[in-house]
Design a protein around this nucleic acid. Structure first.
Lengths: 153, 153
DNA sequence: CGAGTTATTGATACACTGTCGCAAGTTTAT
DNA sequence: ATAAACTTGCGACAGTGTATCAATAACTCG
């Protein structure tokens, strides 16, 4: 590992997100640390309610309101991305600030991040015809990851 | 208009969706017709609850359950597409079966359909690196439509 | 056209997710 | 340590979507 500080590992995410939290003038409280810990330990996308349930099972739990408040902030700051696949629930995946997309495995639920994005370029001809001024987009890919494919009987 | 039957107008949508409904062995009841009528008359995306409220205001209303059931079917059959922009609610836009994307105007809420799609092509190099077998994707674009832009002061 | 068969409806009750307001408790800076 | 300010958590609430099931309406066939 050449550049430990720029590796996008869960531990690095955990640390960087906390630094960003403090830099934003927010306080690093016990409930917030518990939330960050749990997210850092998550191996794939998760819903807000999974997080609520997991922390309720712990002794020092965080309340639903606190959890939703921090999730909102983490998303707006780019440390989480919304996953829209199942629609009605607030689902998230760990993320790094910047423009990325996710490839979600429909079997195991793991989400891979794709940083190259030429979507707006490739759709530009169609948009030009519509005379539509584009501000942003949501792209989410679904499929089967390597692990699940090799494990298929 | 050269090919009236292939025009993608609201009236054609209304007719084709009903034909598809019958072809699927489903019955064309009064509540279902009211729902199709309202959707055909809609000028942009709408939420399930807007539809519920609109039909409640009519004399012969359809119940919430009936509405949600038909919306589910219309979506699964490709006559509606889910709009994910506001997240928690079930929002839809009129649609034609086949692969399309939507460009949603953030000012007026109108949704334009984009039929050309080279998204998976353009993202293929990144996916190859991940060894991810792609099954499908969700793409939604946000921006400002011509009307709203020319109307800006 | 009328009776039988079967899908569909709607009412109600329910479950779940997410939000709000405020008093009490923590964190941070001095 | 102390004060100021932010944060928490509780409880109550609201909105959205779902399940159940008897009553009803739509098709089909003779």
């Amino acid at each position: 590992m050449a550049h430990a500080s720029s590796d996008q590992t869960p531990a690095t995410w955990r640390h960087s997100a906390e630094v960003a939290l403090r830099a934003a003038g927010l306080r690093c409280t016990f409930p917030r640390r518990a939330i960050l810990d749990w997210i850092a330990a998550a191996t794939g996308p998760f819903t807000a309610e999974q997080l609520v349930a997991a922390l309720e099972a712990q002794h020092g739990s965080s309340s639903r309101a606190t959890i939703y408040r921090l999730l909102d902030w983490l998303q707006s700051a780019g440390w989480l991305t919304r996953i829209y696949s199942d629609g009605t629930q607030h689902a998230y995946a760990r993320f790094w600030p910047g423009h990325h997309h996710t490839a979600v495995c429909v079997r195991c639920g793991s989400a891979a991040v794709i940083s190259e994005c030429h979507v707006e370029e490739s759709i530009r001809p169609a948009l030009a015809a519509l005379d539509f001024e584009i501000h942003g987009h949501v792209l989410e890919l679904y499929g089967v990851c390597t692990n699940c494919r090799t494990r298929a009987d």
